[in-house]
């Protein structure tokens, strides 16, 4: 039992921990419920609940991040499901298998996030109605293979940035954070492969993001890449070590929820 050590450790970085805890009557009442003879087995649960209250990472905060992620996964899952069924991917090529693999992962993410939300007693958001032409910006998204891959790249790179931007909101919930990271890196693997598929079609693009370059897709997706050009990390100038391209490529950058929602808004009816 290292409860007191936990409190003591937190006190070192947050001298106000006791005030935070003490002023949260609800959290304290949870302990009161346990009575003077505290049930040791219940301590981890009571503690988790107490800190969630004290630091504002309640189950509802966790579930709001999960529902945010679920919305993005709905978008990707339906995009690949429709794309795979549309015939836009040249039949008889390795692209079919790759798109099916990605489609299956995105659908698995939808199921996983729904199950996780349900297990937390939260309600998964409903799937929005999507318009993958983004109001006519990509009119041939399911008939032109290059357009399809361009939208896929934008979705994957943005998905990576979206998960990254919310990881900190999950820091108190280890299991959920780990799962989110495990999805995040899958999206990055997808992004890498989609970019290679575009390169094979003649696009000037690498598996990683150089500067804020859209890889030739253009202004329609510029917001998806703005901010990726960063070459200073935690006050360290990466240009001291490698060239400018490598300095920006070697770190992927996050997007805030508002930035992501603005980016996907044209795809939601």
């Amino acid at each position: 039992m290292n409860l007191l050590n936990v409190i003591s450790a937190i006190e070192k970085i947050d001298p106000e921990v006791h005030d935070r805890l003490d002023t949260r009557r609800g959290a304290m009442q949870q302990f009161a419920k346990l009575g003077g003879k505290i049930a040791m087995a219940a301590v981890p649960f009571a503690l988790g609940s107490m800190f969630k209250t004290a630091y504002g990472q309640s189950t509802s905060d966790i579930s709001s991040v999960l529902n945010y992620a679920l919305t993005l996964e709905y978008l990707e899952a339906e995009f690949y499901t429709k794309g795979a069924a549309s015939g836009v991917v040249p039949s008889g090529t390795p692209a079919v298998g790759a798109i099916n693999t990605i489609r299956d992962h995105e659908n698995a993410h939808v199921t996983f996030l729904k199950n996780t939300l349900n297990s937390l007693g939260a309600t998964p958001v409903s799937k929005p109605t999507f318009d993958f032409t983004a109001g006519g910006t990509f009119p041939n998204v399911f008939t032109n293979y290059d357009t399809f891959l361009a939208v896929a790249q934008a979705f994957e790179d943005t998905g990576v940035r979206a998960y990254k931007g919310r990881a900190g909101d999950l820091i108190s919930s280890h299991a959920v954070l780990t799962a989110a990271l495990q999805i995040h890196s899958v999206e990055a693997r997808h992004a890498s492969h989609i970019r290679q598929m575009r390169k094979a079609r003649g696009a000037n693009v690498k598996p990683w993001i150089t500067g804020n370059d859209t890889g030739g897709i253009g202004s329609a997706v510029q917001a998806n890449y703005n901010g990726e050009e960063l070459t200073t990390q935690a006050g360290v100038n990466i240009l001291n070590f490698v060239n400018a391209n490598a300095a920006s490529e070697s770190f992927d950058e996050p997007l805030t929820a508002n930035q992501v929602l603005a980016i996907v808004k044209p795809f939601i009816v």
């Binding site: 390795p94 298998g97 790759a98 693999t101 990605i102 992962h105 990576v160 998960y163 990254k164 990881a167 900190g168 820091i171 990271l181 995040h184 890196s185 899958v186 999206e187 990055a188 693997r189 997808h190 992004a191 890498s192 492969h193 290679q196 598996p207 990683w208 990390q233 935690a234 490529e249 070697s250 770190f251 992927d252 950058e253 996050p254």
Partner: peptide
């Protein structure tokens, strides 16, 4: 945590590429 997140997705991009160089389509 954010810094680790910024790096891990680049490692995942590498992993997918290297896997595809070995066998195309094995990225994930």
């Amino acid at each position: 945590l954010l810094l680790a997140g910024k790096i891990v997705s680049v490692e995942a991009r590498h992993a997918a590429l290297i896997r595809d160089l070995i066998s195309n389509g094995s990225f994930a």
